[in-house]
Structures are given as C-alpha cells and as structure tokens.
Design a protein around this nucleic acid. Sequence first.
DNA 1: AAGTTGCATTGACACAGATCAAAGGGGTAC
DNA 2: GTACCCCTTTGATCTGTGTCAATGCAACTT
Lengths: 252, 252
Amino acid sequence: MHANVKQNVVPLITPGLKLACSQCNLRELCLPFGLSEHDMGRLDSLIGGARKLKRGQHLYRAGDVFESIFAVKAGFFKTDVLTEDGRDQVTGFQMAGEIVGMDGISTEVHTCNAVALEDSEVCLIPFTELEVLSSEIRSLQHHLHKVMSREIVRDHGVMMLLGTMRAEERLAAFLLNLSQRFTTRGYSPTEFHLRMTREEIGSYLGLKLETVSRAFSRFQDEGLISVQQKHIRILDIPRLKTLLAPPDGRIR
Amino acid sequence: MHANVKQNVVPLITPGLKLACSQCNLRELCLPFGLSEHDMGRLDSLIGGARKLKRGQHLYRAGDVFESIFAVKAGFFKTDVLTEDGRDQVTGFQMAGEIVGMDGISTEVHTCNAVALEDSEVCLIPFTELEVLSSEIRSLQHHLHKVMSREIVRDHGVMMLLGTMRAEERLAAFLLNLSQRFTTRGYSPTEFHLRMTREEIGSYLGLKLETVSRAFSRFQDEGLISVQQKHIRILDIPRLKTLLAPPDGRIR
DNA sequence: AAGTTGCATTGACACAGATCAAAGGGGTAC
DNA sequence: GTACCCCTTTGATCTGTGTCAATGCAACTT
C-alpha cells in the first residue's frame, strides 16, 4: 500500500553531523533531562552520531535487529505495526525530543516500522552502551525508566481513545494532543501542518480516511477549526475540549 | 459503577508469607529470569514481602504515590484507567508471573487502578531499590528493560486489536491470548474460568457487554467453544485462529 | 505549461454494533 | 438454606461509521 517501497536505501550515519546534547535545545525534552554538565558529556560520547532521513525513508523495519534507540532531533515520524494477515495500525507519531525504537528491547528485534513523514534527523543511541552508562549514572537510569513508562502510559491513553471514544471525540483528542506537543516545543498551538495523510490519521485513530475527512469538515462547518488540506488552524480550543467531555457527564 | 467501593481497606503486608524467588516456580516467567543463584538471593533480599488481596480489593489506585512494582504470585488482576469525564477502559488482565504497576514510574504517581479479580497474592518490589540493584546486576537491569518493552509491545497489540478488528475477531484474539498464557503456566489451553465479567471483557475489547455475550453465543452455536457463564472450553483452536486472518487476505 | 498521480472531499447506501428492554440463572451473603 | 442481587442472555430497533463511487484539488514531473 505504501508507495515508498523502493526508497529502501539504508540511511548512512553522518559523522560530521554530531551535535552534543549539551548544545541541543531539545535536551530538556529528551534523554539527557536532569543530567549534570559532566554526565551529559558522558552521554554525548556514546551517542553514535546523527542520521538524516528523507521523507518516506524507514528508520527501521519490523524484523530488523535491535541495536539502538533513536532520539528525534528534527522532523516527524510515524510507527506502525503490520501483521501477516494484512492488518496495519499506526501506533504513534513522534516529533523532536521524543524517543523511538523501544519496542525492540524486549525481543532484540524491532516489532514495528518507523518511517520519516518529512525530512528528518535522529540521534542514534546504542542501547547496550546506554545500559552500561545508565548503571553508572543514577539519574540517567531513572530517566530512561521514566521515558519507557511514559510510553506505556501514552499507550493506555490511546487504548482509552480507541476503546471508548466516537469519531469526532477521537479527532478532537488527536488535534489537542498535537497542539499541546507543539506548544511544548515552542511552536504555535493553533496553527500547524499535518505531516501525515488522512489515511494515517485514520489508522492511528481506528477510523477510515473518509470518516476523518468528514470529521474535519464538520469541525470546520462549526467554526472549531479551519482546514485546508494539511494546514490546520484551531479556532476554538476550549470548545474542542468540551467535545471530549460529554455534557451529560456519562457517569456509567 | 463498581460495587467494591467499600472494600477500600489497605491490604497489609504479610511478612511471614515471604517466599524466595529461588523457591518460586514462577521464576522463569518473572523478574528473576536469567539470574544466577547468587544474584537471585540479592533480589530476594530487597523484595518487600508478599501481599494478599481478596477479590475486589485494589492493589493500588490512580493517584496513589508510586513506590513499588508488583509481581503477581497467584491470582488474577485487571488494570483500568478512568478519566474525569467518566470514561473507563480496562487496559489489561494480569496473571501469575506478570509485573503490574509500571505505569507509575513516569510521574511517581499511578495512573491506573489495579484490582484483584479473585483472591490473589503479589510480591512487592520497591522500585528505587530495584534500580539500585539493577545498576549492579547487568542481567537484572536488562531483563527489567525487556519487561517494560514487552509491555509496550503488548499495548501495540491491543491498539491493533482495537483499531482494526471486528467484534468476533477481538473476542477470538482475546480467548487465544488467554489460552496461550494459561499454557505457559501449565494450565489447560482449552478449559478455564474467566475471572472477569462480560462488561470487563467488553471494556478491554472496546465493545459493549451485550456484544461480548452475543459473540460468545455465536461461537458456541458454531461449535468453536462451549460457554457456561464464566466457564469456557475451547473446542476448535485452529478454526478460532482462522477468524483472525480474514480469508480474503484483506490486503489494503 | 500540461499531464500525471496521489490525496482529499463529498454523497448514497449498507451494516455491525450500540442501545433499550425484559427475563432467566447462579453465586454470595446472611 | 434461602433470598437477593448481579451477571448474563436474548430480542427489537436505532445509528454511527464503513463501504463504494465519483469528483476535485494540488504538487511534482517532464
């Protein structure tokens, strides 16, 4: 289904590209959070350099041997799982400062695909070496655990969304989540470009692309947002939030 | 909605109950997996004892301060998230040898509830001390990471289920998953008691209890299983498996 | 600049699962 | 041992979302 099959060129590591964590403006969002200058230097020294990816390129594929986790330095990714029987589910969208690849730790093999949705750049963090260092730096160890736990909690949120919400509620939650993450990164909370297609949004939200499209249109008709293809402007955040909390209180 | 609100008695630790990991027949499924005798002894010494819970009792609640993770020693648990707006989603069912509570690591506060579905027993594993020990024992550290990663991968599986499967497919996947886990623990793969209600199954699978009940009945009519309240006998595992792989191949 | 291609929108209709309702069964507590 | 209550089953109907199909829009290629 994806048109990118041919783009399976293994992205090469770009050594000159390396930028120390201590210099990185994402350090407060990313793995080095809470480290001293000195410890950050130690983390720097194990990071295997950066890797640039063009839109559509895979960072890794299901079945690849797991060696590293990745910190998104710039750009936008999606992760998806696909099963033998042809099911395909987007499990997440990742942006700058977020960690990708932790699915591979459990079996030493990646269980999902990670694809760049725009030209992107990641820092490569060899996992075995990270474990060594984290056994020496208490705060690094603890933060790594927090990052993994946060992923578990995030997944619970998605399960809640998929299990209990209706189409418009899901889309509202999705937009508010993006808005919130853009805010954290210093971008506009109300105006942004979607990097993914309607189909990818639909897959993530457990909906068909037509349903996503219709929900966008309805939100626009009601003055909640303005949509022009992938360009979104949120016009009424408070009212969007009320969509998530059914007025009747739905106290089961 | 739950009738168990009054049973909020804090379960006390039962010191005499402590049974060393090395004596535990779950050690190959649980945290001590892969440890030497000696290291298992060190793990034993930090485990804070066992805790018994009656059916309906909470192991922890959303909002509780996070201090420990728990290994299920006997019994059966569910975890669920509930939001301010009254949504309620069962995020998992846990049985012997499985680890509960990792949702709390990220914010130091639990984000979901864990409730015993039958009289149960857990080992209490203080997390800070576990971190200390795991920085000293490489294989323990790595196994902890694997356990957390496995939880992430499991959640992806649930997202796939909720996002792409129809009611009967979800229930078939659920039964096969239980069957597989019972097998691992030496119980019958084909005959078991459900510890949870139709409503809890429905919440986990993103369905209403009536839909779950109807799907059970249809499976029974078709000779796939036999159902009598909570007692399940799987009659035809292969055919149940084919329900998961749509014959047309559904290659989107 | 025109043609191609993929993505998005919109409409009509179908259907799976939700909702509402009622009755039966089994386990639990007293 | 008995009574109550919760859980489960089953039916009838409703509805949100999927499906199928056609058109429109925009970006990229040559």
